[in-house]
Design a protein around this nucleic acid. Structure first.
Lengths: 170, 170
DNA sequence: AAAATATGTCAGTACTATTGACATATTTTT
DNA sequence: AAAAATATGTCAATAGTACTGACATATTTT
């Protein structure tokens, strides 16, 4: 009868490389790049008692002023319960205002205030600077290519949403 | 005497574009790209009762077998209390084993098991496929450029860490 | 008038992260 | 040899972001 006690599994001492056609290099780089990309605004947000979720809401409300709560949930892919606390805080602190929908009065259109616009720009500034620097390192023709790459990384179903150009409202 | 009651802030109805030299397009794309990039493994991990943190630990232990707990904390930039639960679960489920450091017996070297290696590869597969497809859309010469871009997005202090090629241990 | 929709809210839970405090084993310094 | 520093582990409390499920209200559609 075999030993049913716990046999320690054997350690594998060889590193995974880019084997099996798996691109570990870019997987890892993407992780580091995104982490550092979000680190600058994260630090600034802490001063307001805000987190990354507030940034995202603020970003999209500034990009698509007048979007409804439902549209925002759709873009962010979160539930309304998750949004509730964050949105309430942004409204209470006068970064965002809600207006009753003109056609459908059940809807709440979301707009940034001057304060909310200013914060969104302040948060985006270091991120944009980082991107700009990274693109310089890569040559001028790189921008279109990087944009194409990032775009192709997004699920196809969602691309329509993204391509929708930010519009001014009413 | 001015009204001290709450005056509703005025809504701004114009969308932020890529004004002030701020690259909102790429900021937004980077957000969507990373979200979808992590969505495939996230779904798989749910089947194990694991989260994204488990994935990251598994990834780096497979990439740098034999790294110590302190080295792992340094790479992930989290605290040992955050790591504790996740690492314990991975050890209890035989995805990772700990060996006493040969030189310094206080250290715990972390190694993947066959099971842990298999899971790491399974999680990386859809991510790699996504990257591969995105690169195809962008042309063959694009890969080096994308790698350069992502690399330049990382904080310079950390680049040494990344460039350290995954090594086989002992 | 009834059903569907848009929003808001309450309650409970999970995951990942934090800080602070303390314990143990081991190595380094004095 | 004793003291200090280091590597790891663990306990407790807290925060931020997310989830599901349930229910309430106002409004629009059927």
């Amino acid at each position: 009868m075999p030993d049913r006690k716990r046999v320690p599994e054997l350690p594998i001492r060889t590193a995974v490389a880019n084997e099996d056609g798996i691109d570990f290099t870019l997987i890892e780089l993407f992780f580091f790049a995104y982490r550092d990309f979000t680190s600058d605004p994260d630090e600034m947000l802490a001063d307001y008692g805000f987190g990354r979720a507030h940034h995202r809401v603020l970003h999209f409300v500034n990009r698509r002023p007048g979007l409804t709560v439902a549209e925002l949930l759709e873009v962010l892919k979160i539930t309304k319960q998750s949004l509730a606390r964050v949105l309430k805080q942004l409204i209470d602190t006068d970064h965002i205002v809600q207006l009753q929908g003109p056609r459908d009065r059940r809807q709440r259109e979301l707009y940034p205030t001057a304060k909310g616009r200013a914060l969104a720009l302040a948060l985006a500034r270091p991120q944009s600077r980082r991107i700009h620097t990274a693109l310089q390192d890569v040559g001028a023709e790189g921008r279109a290519l990087v944009e194409g790459f990032l775009n192709a990384m997004v699920n196809p179903e969602l691309r329509a949403q993204i391509d929708a150009p930010p519009r001014n409202h009413e």
